[in-house]
Nucleic acid binder design. Structure first.
Length: 103
DNA sequence: GGGGTGACGCGTC
DNA sequence: CGACGCGCCACCC
């Protein structure tokens, strides 16, 4: 199991209508310090259809500005389509943050 | 083979 | 409360 593979698995675990932070993904993948690798892993995103990278937001709940797969607006639209309210490019982590430890 | 960078996170100043 | 630095891993030059 490669590091990237773990990250992808963690991202795929994010349920519909929920979002996860890079830190969450990094923790689920193995180490919280992999936050950078998580970003890079999603950057290469070999399987965007299965890897819902748009559900991953930074620690502030804000979508990545470098999300160039269709524009930041596209990511927000996808999140709203799942029932996630996005305000000013940010989501309410207190309400929409996926809590893996609660599963 | 070595060095620098990157869709980040957290602690400290 | 805002800004800066350090740490981790993988990829590119």
């Amino acid at each position: 199991m490669n590091t990237f593979q773990k990250i992808y698995e963690a991202v795929k675990r994010i349920p519909k209508g929920k979002v996860a932070t890079y830190g969450q993904i990094a923790t689920l993948a193995g180490n919280v310090h992999w936050s950078r690798v998580v970003g890079y892993a999603l950057h290469v995103n070999p399987d965007p259809e299965n890897i819902h990278c748009y559900r991953v937001v930074n620690r502030n709940g804000e979508v990545s500005s470098a999300f160039a797969f269709g524009g930041k607006n596209m990511q927000i639209s996808l999140l709203e389509a799942e029932g996630i309210q996005v305000e000013n490019g940010k989501v309410d982590l207190e309400k929409y943050r996926w809590r893996a430890e609660n599963e």
